[in-house]
Amino acid sequence: MPFYLEIIICICLLIGGIFLLIGSYGLARLPDIYMRLHAPTKASTLGITGVLVASMVYQSHLKGAFSVQELLITLFLLITAPVAANMIAKTALHYRTKALDRTHGQELMETIRDRESPKPPSES
């Protein structure tokens, strides 16, 4: 394997590992669910992306052709992680999970809880 590919793979693995470590630390240390949503959805998504890009470069070199599997996994994670975080936040709002006093946007939580569902165009 050429030295430049080893360097690219190592850099991607290091960046991915750092983001995964930051995401794990944030998940363990942040105090409430609304703050905890940011760590796994942002940092961990970038971390997994770094690891999968390194795997994609390695597998592409081994096969001699572009490796599509890692790219598809990365795209799936980039699409599903924000959707999952949104569903977790909606569930926390629905169950009226209390946020800490220092959590920003507390006034928006009541507005979101009390809003009505949009009416279909035929009922307007």
Rank of each mutant, 00 (worst) to 15 (best):
P2V: 03
P2M: 07
P2C: 02
Y4T: 14
L5F: 09
E6L: 13
E6C: 07
I8C: 09
I9D: 10
C10Q: 14
C10Y: 10
L13K: 13
L14D: 05
L14K: 05
L14T: 15
L14I: 15
I15C: 12
I15V: 15
I15K: 05
G16E: 05
G16V: 03
G17E: 08
G17N: 06
G17F: 03
G17Y: 04
F19W: 01
L20H: 01
L20N: 08
L21N: 05
L21A: 13
L21R: 02
I22N: 01
S24I: 02
Y25W: 08
Y25T: 09
A28Y: 06
A28D: 00
R29A: 12
R29I: 09
L30P: 01
D32G: 06
D32A: 09
Y34Q: 08
R36I: 06
R36P: 02
L37N: 03
L37C: 03
H38F: 05
A39D: 02
A39L: 02
P40E: 00
T41V: 09
K42G: 01
K42Y: 01
A43D: 02
S44K: 00
T45K: 00
G47L: 02
I48W: 05
L52M: 12
A54Y: 09
S55T: 14
S55K: 05
M56V: 10
M56K: 10
V57A: 14
V57D: 06
S60K: 08
S60I: 08
L62Y: 04
K63C: 03
G64S: 07
A65H: 12
A65W: 04
F66G: 04
S67C: 11
S67D: 15
Q69R: 07
E70K: 02
E70V: 01
L71C: 04
L71W: 07
L71M: 11
L72P: 01
I73N: 03
L75N: 07
F76C: 06
L77N: 04
L78V: 08
I79F: 15
T80V: 15
T80D: 06
T80R: 08
T80W: 10
A81I: 07
P82L: 07
V83G: 08
A84M: 14
A84I: 14
A85C: 04
M87A: 14
I88M: 15
A89N: 08
A89K: 10
K90L: 15
K90W: 09
K90S: 14
T91Y: 11
A92S: 13
A92I: 09
L93R: 11
L93I: 14
R96A: 13
T97I: 15
T97G: 02
K98T: 10
K98D: 13
A99I: 05
A99N: 06
L100G: 12
R102H: 14
R102C: 12
H104W: 14
G105D: 08
Q106D: 08
L108A: 13
L108H: 12
E110S: 12
I112S: 05
I112V: 15
I112W: 11
R115Q: 14
R115G: 04
R115P: 00
R115M: 14
E116W: 01
S117N: 11
K119I: 05
K119A: 10
P120Y: 00
S122L: 09
S122H: 06
E123R: 08
E123D: 13
